[in-house]
Design a binder for these strands. Structure first.
Lengths: 331, 331
DNA sequence: ATGAAAGCGCTAACAA
DNA sequence: TTGTTAGCGCTTTCAT
């Protein structure tokens, strides 16, 4: 049986209200009363019942985190970052993976209506009207982490997909590349489409002629990158560099290229996006864009906590976290 | 304001007790009363207040998950697996990362005493007396996921590190390798030391002479693998295969080997342990041991839920999840 | 089969 | 400064 304030009250010869006040440090409690209560609490190894506290306060200090139906190191880092920030602010983190059994809307619904979380963060690679409807249905505050901030009137933290892809092309142009191919990600993925857009607009700006056959399609997996690359290598006019929309696909390109005995970057260059752990150690090491996942999680959590505290301005905030070009040996 | 059973009761002209019963499906409630309540609940879009329910029941249906101070894809998969299993059994999952700010014992203490979770799973690469003490201090059920099951009287789910390492050596012996080196992981890591033990005992059994200089030390990072490999390559008598205690270090070996122009596996062969995502796509693809993280999470969560239900035998259970040798092109 | 009422641990409004 | 008390939403006895 856990210790309750009742037992502390008894032992200290005060009321539970006084104990509650002393413990919360808040109100006007006489210094020595406070000291006594704290001493007894410590000696009894008292821990407040968080559930009871949340319950009576009518709000929860648990932050929900809705994950999409994939798992990679990216999420692992975001989870850690969010949990760190939550912890430092006195909150807990509850994860909820969406998958075949539990749809995204079900997760949102639970977050909104079960009273279990006081706010939540949604990692969301794409959005549709059903999801929007679910998000608009409740009063629990939330923040989205998404590839695109143009997804309605929601607080959202994004990475600068468009800008970074644009800069990558600029870098390639400066390097002297003229024939630039792109392997895009899933069509319904916001990160993917913004990266593609950045690529296309930069090419257009720098008068890079992008052949239609150089716009290959992938789905962010290594296999899809390998396949797309093989196709590109079979074109009568080959590109001299391939900009893959993520590192996984870029590494798939490595495989396709090495399998036919070509060398990176002399025969063909490769660049990626994300800077996953392995990219630094690939052979050759991959030039890519480092997404600041740590900061993304932190900013999202801090914004959510602001909203949960209700302290600050309620206007929608779109925060874009800058990524960084990481130049290595693959181009 | 969320809907409560009170409002349903009013609308249905019954007491809140009846609503509660009808909703929980449990007791003897007249069929039509039940139907009516359910209908109104649905029409009002009622969701039970989980916090209140946990609170009144005096136990939580939230499962805590304590993560160590590292993040990699392995944890991402385990989190997902545990959350899946929790969900299917009507539980929620709360994560708690340990790190510089929040010690492991603090996490355990919170799990034990805050009433916020009804049980927890501890991902724990090593154990010490302080942790043991914390684990023995409370009455909240828990399950460990650890590399070694010989860590006291706790329920623990492990992977078969020893067996698998042993089998890997057997495989290498059958392949004809005679000079086998090993790069071990952190000395205080249970997975690492069991893998090393399996390696050593298998070598002993098959009369493989293991030179002392072939027992290199790493710390599971790619860099440490690279460094250890370089050292091995500088020995006057080089091994003809290196068995790294994890894939990351094995891939570090790739780097060291490629950097001096040698080829895998003709000049020297490599094997790893873990089968991380990238290993299949490394060049050459890495022969390794696939750890069944999905199953580890599932088994741990199921065992914990058993304990939380208090339904079954209380005797300590040690469950070892079998890993699988994955033969590819690196040896 | 249903209702009335107690109570889970805590906070907060109100009294003193 | 401290105590008394109501009540958060729900489950669960105990009556009826």
């Amino acid at each position: 049986m856990p210790i309750t304030i009742k037992q502390i009250a008894k032992k200290a010869n005060v009321s539970i209200a006084t104990v509650s006040r002393a413990l919360s440090g808040d109100s006007k409690v006489r210094e020595d009363t406070k000291k006594l209560v704290l001493k007894i609490a410590k000696q009894l190894n008292y821990n407040p019942n968080i559930l009871a506290r949340n319950f009576v306060k009518g709000k929860s200090n648990i932050i929900g985190l809705v994950l999409p139906d994939i798992s990679d190191e990216y999420f692992s880092e975001i989870i850690r970052s969010i949990d760190d920030t939550s912890y430092l602010n006195g909150y807990y983190t509850m994860v909820m993976s969406s998958h075949e059994n539990r749809s995204l809307t079900e997760s949102i619904n639970t977050m909104m209506n079960s009273g279990i979380v006081g706010g939540f963060i949604l990692l969301i690679p794409f959005i549709n009207s059903e999801i929007k409807k679910a998000l608009n249905s409740g009063s629990v505050p939330f923040v989205l982490i998404s590839g695109d901030d143009d997804i309605g009137d929601f607080d959202v933290v994004t990475t600068d997909n468009y800008q970074s892809a644009f800069r990558m092309v600029e870098f390639l142009v400066v390097k002297g590349y003229k024939k630039i191919a792109h392997i895009s990600g899933p069509p319904d993925n916001n990160d993917a489409s913004l990266r593609k857009k950045g690529f296309l607009n930069a090419c257009s700006k720098y008068k890079i002629d992008v052949k239609k056959s150089w716009l290959a399609k992938g789905n962010f997996t290594m296999e899809s990158g390998e396949k797309a690359c093989s196709k590109l290598l079979n074109e009568k006019e080959k590109p001299d560099v391939i900009f893959a929309a993520n590192d996984m696909m870029a590494l798939g390109c490595y495989k396709a290229i090495h399998s036919i005995g070509l060398k990176i970057p002399v025969d063909i260059a490769i660049t990626g996006f994300d800077d996953i752990l392995i990219s630094e150690y690939a052979n050759p090491s991959l030039t890519t864009i480092r997404v600041d996942t740590d900061r993304i999680g932190k900013v999202a959590a801090e914004r959510l906590i602001e909203k949960m505290n209700g302290s600050i301005n309620k206007t929608i905030q779109k925060k874009e976290i800058a990524s960084q070009l990481v130049i290595r040996s693959s181009c």
